[in-house]
Structure formats: C-alpha cells, structure tokens
Computed example of a mutant assay.
Amino acid sequence: MNDMIPHAFHYRKKSTGWQVILSYKADGKWKQKSKQGFSQKSLAKAAGEKLLKKIAENYVPTPADPLMQNITLKQFWAIYQIDKKKQLSDGSIDVYENAISAFSDLCNIPLPDLTRAYIQTCVNESKLSASTVELYMSKFKVMIRHAITFYELLRKSPMDGIIYPEINEEEIQTISTKEFNCLYAYLHENQYMLSVMAAVGYYAGLRYGEIAGLTWASIDLDKKELKVIRQFKRFRTAEKTYEYKLGKLKTSNSKRTIPMPITLQRILTEYKEAKFPVAPDGRIFYWRIVKLSATF
C-alpha cells in the first residue's frame, strides 16, 4: 500500500538532532507528519518509513484518486483487506494471497485492462487442480465485485461467464476398523500421545484443530461427553510470522457436544491417569510449536 500513497520525505539537521518530515496526500489534500531528535540521519529515515507504514495501514484512496484508475488486482487487495478487516479470518487471507501468488501475471494487470478472454486463458492454462483454480477465481470475483460496487472502478465484471474445468469428484475412502486398529497399535507403541489423538478423531469425528484444542474442562469422562468449543489454529502476527494458539471455531454451528463411546472413554481415562504435561493454555495434547515466517 505504501507505493500507492503520494508522498515525499524531507530531512533536516537541527540542534536537537535529525528531523524527518513526511508529506503525503490523503482525501485530496497534502498533509504532513514529522518526528525529530534522532542522532543519525539513518534513524530519521527509519522513523519516516514507520510513519508511512502506519498511515498506509488505514489509507483507502477515493474512487476519484488518479491512482485508482489503473490499479491492479494485487494493489486492490490491500484496499480490500482494510475494507473487510473484520470479516477476513487469517485462513481466508492466506487463500487470497495464495491466489494472487498463483496468478501473479493476471493480478499485475490494471483492472480496466482485464478481459474475460485473458482470464479464461489463465484458467485454461493453469497447472493447478480444477478445484483450486475455481477457489482462487472465486476470490478474484469477490474482489472485483467490491471494486465495482464500492469504488465504481469498472462497469462490468470480466469474471462473468468464465468456464471452469470440470471437477472430478472422487468417492472419499474412509479408514476401516482393521486399518485404524493397526494404526492405533503402532502409535500406541511408538507415539502414545498421537495414538490418543487418533482415537479422538476416529471415535468422535473431530477435526485436527478441534482435537488439538481439547482441554480437560471440555471432556466429561463420567458423562462420556466431549464439548467442542475452541480449536487450535494458526494466527498471523504483526512481524509477518505465524503463531499457533487457541481460537474460535470456524462457525458458531461448529460448537457441539459429542457422546463418547466407552472405548474412547477408556483411552482418555488412561491418558489422564498417565499425567502427561498440559499446555499453559490448558490443552491436553501439548508439544512445542516453532514460529513460521509468512511467505507472501
């Protein structure tokens, strides 16, 4: 977003140290912000970049802004993020950014120059799976609709009428009882905690994040019930890294109470009696997580 804001830096050496003055254009007017008292010019430059970054975080150009006339889909993504800040989950942001990365040529073309024919060619020539192509294109379609509805950047969406490859819907193969028993026996012998997690998934039907987010407070061994109320998930940090912690479920309908078969009750009872370490946040399946860098 920084490169979309008309701006200029000026530096002055004063008796109290170096001063940086940031001039930038917003709402059709030139404005200024400054900081001073730096012992070196390099420190003043770094402070100026921080000022610009802070302004850019909430900067949304007006439809009449000349910069908007030839904005690309990649550039518009920064604006869309600000407009939809409260609606976009970290997982959704990852999908959008993966889509932009996968179709970088398409996303670097000015919106007025995007044509249905070019988009169709990108779809036809993509090496991605049919379902992934359709998913990514659906994100572009939403962004372009936003550009039309809220900013009047286009009269008609070039996404209309795009034909997608046929998705081959293969029948899902579930694990058999014999296969699970073999898996459980191996894990129980070699990775005890993983064997318990596998049992929760098999007998209660929980997703991985829901299993990893279980606490003893959400498990009633006497009533033989599991309460799914949170999940262990990935969050973005301000430093462009990822961290894992407990968070909300994907939807409110995901909250549920699941009856526990007696086999799972026995497995969880034995696990509790084994007194495995509990995470600081109460999770019963605890292991160290290394922060990952965001790649976009």
Rank of each mutant, 00 (worst) to 15 (best):
Y271G: 01
W30R: 03
V228M: 05
K275A: 10
Q231G: 09
K245G: 09
K127G: 10
A294D: 13
S129M: 11
E243G: 00
G209Y: 06
Y151W: 15
Y96H: 10
P259K: 05
I163F: 12
M143P: 00
A8F: 12
E189S: 10
T241R: 08
M197T: 11
I262Q: 10
H7R: 02
K250Q: 04
D222S: 09
L221P: 04
Q19M: 15
Q19G: 02
L221V: 01
M4D: 06
A26H: 13
E273Q: 10
L206S: 01
Q231P: 00
T295I: 10
S195V: 04
P61F: 07
R145H: 14
L206E: 07
S218D: 15
Q87H: 12
L194D: 08
Y244G: 03
V142Y: 06
K41G: 00
S34A: 14
H188M: 06
M68W: 02
N58I: 09
R207E: 05
E189N: 14
A8E: 14
T241M: 08
K227R: 12
K54D: 15
K74Y: 07
I262E: 15
G201T: 04
K240C: 03
A147L: 04
P165I: 00
C107P: 02
T115W: 12
F276L: 13
E166M: 07
I262Y: 07
K41C: 02
H146L: 01
W77L: 08
D105I: 10
M1V: 07
E134I: 05
V60N: 01
K14Q: 15
Q87C: 01
P165Q: 07
P110N: 04
T237S: 01
L183S: 08
P6E: 09
R266M: 06
K86F: 06
K224G: 01
P63K: 06
L111E: 03
L183F: 12
I289W: 13
D90E: 11
R236F: 09
E171T: 14
G17F: 03
F103I: 04
T149V: 14
S293V: 01
T251D: 00
V142C: 01
Y242S: 01
H7W: 03
V200W: 04
R230F: 06
I21F: 04
M4E: 09
A78F: 10
K35T: 03
I163Q: 15
F276S: 12
K245H: 07
N2V: 13
L73G: 08
T174K: 05
P261D: 00
V196Q: 05
E49P: 00
S104T: 14
I55E: 15
I109G: 12
S138V: 03
K29Q: 08
Y184M: 09
T174S: 15
I162N: 14
Q231D: 00
Q40Y: 13
P112S: 09
A46I: 04
P63C: 05
K85H: 13
R116G: 06
K240Q: 12
V142K: 14
S252T: 03
V278K: 09
M137L: 15
